[in-house]
């Protein structure tokens, strides 16, 4: 049976925790708004690039450019995006779970699957089970996402593909739907997937300037960068959204807990008073008698 003092102490500590979770929720809400704006602003560009590239991939033969066709090497690279900090609900675990499933499902298809991890949490969560397959870990990116970061990552991916280290590259990240919902998405980065559309709408004679090869050379790495950029932005927005809802429910749980503890505290206090009264009365009764 806890004493009155113990319960009081617990109430204070739960209150402190709830103050922290409330503050974190507010911070995440503010950051979420900014991240969300960035995602929305980046979408038109990403969509346009995607449109251009996929119609391009449809028109061209797979051997027109190294990034369009599957390479000989049967090795895959998975780029996964997690957060650097914890306390954001199921954000990181859902990603790592998907990655694990993906790796297990595809072990037969590929001779090896390497992982390129963005975010400290992803590294920590997967180190024990899949640590051997890490090729590169990028930490502390999520603070300021800019296009240059994506270019850096994109370069790495493209180099790996062109040098025939990898036959396929996948991107696994949390797509941002709303503050409450994030959807774990598996995207094939390379080789480029052609868009589905019917043959009639295709324009046969496209003019390329300066030449088809040059245009493809510049465009395709861009495509990878843009995809990664969009993934990073979505991932950051999802992280904040996820943390916001996690902290919201933590705050709710804390206030519920405080209510329960206060009830218990009051009951105990009342019992103590009643007990004291009984003692006094029975004492005076016995003197009287």
């Amino acid at each position: 049976m806890p004493s009155l003092k113990d319960i009081k102490k617990r109430i204070v500590s739960v209150k402190n925790t709830s103050q922290i979770t409330k503050a974190m929720k507010m911070v995440s809400a503010a950051k979420l708004r900014k991240a969300q704006e960035a995602v929305v602003a980046a979408r038109p560009y990403a969509e346009k690039v995607q449109d251009v590239i996929s119609s391009l991939a449809l028109r061209e033969d797979a051997d027109a450019h190294p990034l369009l066709g599957a390479r000989g090497k049967n090795r895959a690279l998975v780029v996964l995006m997690t957060s650097d900090r914890g306390l954001c609900g199921g954000f990181n675990s859902s990603i790592t779970k998907t990655v694990e499933q993906f790796v297990r499902k595809n072990t037969e298809g590929y001779e090896a699957i390497d992982l390129m991890v963005v975010g400290r949490k992803g590294k920590e969560l997967l180190k024990r089970r899949l640590g051997d397959s890490f090729v590169n870990v990028h930490e502390n990116l999520s603070g300021n996402i800019n296009y240059a970061t994506a270019q850096l990552l994109g370069q790495e991916v493209v180099d790996g593909f062109v040098s025939e280290t990898y036959g396929a590259v996948y991107l696994i990240y949390n797509a941002f739907k709303s503050a409450m919902t994030q959807i774990v998405t598996i995207d094939q980065l390379l080789p480029v997937v052609p868009k589905e559309c019917d043959e009639n709408t295709l324009v046969a004679d496209y003019i390329y300037e300066p030449s088809q090869g040059d245009v493809l050379d510049q465009l395709l790495p861009k495509y990878v960068e843009v995809k990664i950029f969009k993934g990073l932005l979505e991932s950051v927005a999802s992280e904040h959204g996820s943390r916001m809802s996690a902290m919201d429910s933590a705050s709710k749980n804390a206030s519920e807990m405080i209510g329960k503890l206060t009830l218990q505290y009051n009951r105990l206090r009342q019992a103590a008073i009643t007990k004291e009264l009984m003692e006094i009365i029975s004492g005076s009764e016995s003197i009287k008698g």
Binding site: V52, L56, V203, D205, Y206, I207, Y208, E209, P210, D214, V215, Q218, L219
Partner: peptide, 8 residues
């Protein structure tokens, strides 16, 4: 009315 074109 320009013909389809893709250029850098």
């Amino acid at each position: 009315g320009h013909t389809p074109l893709l250029t850098t």
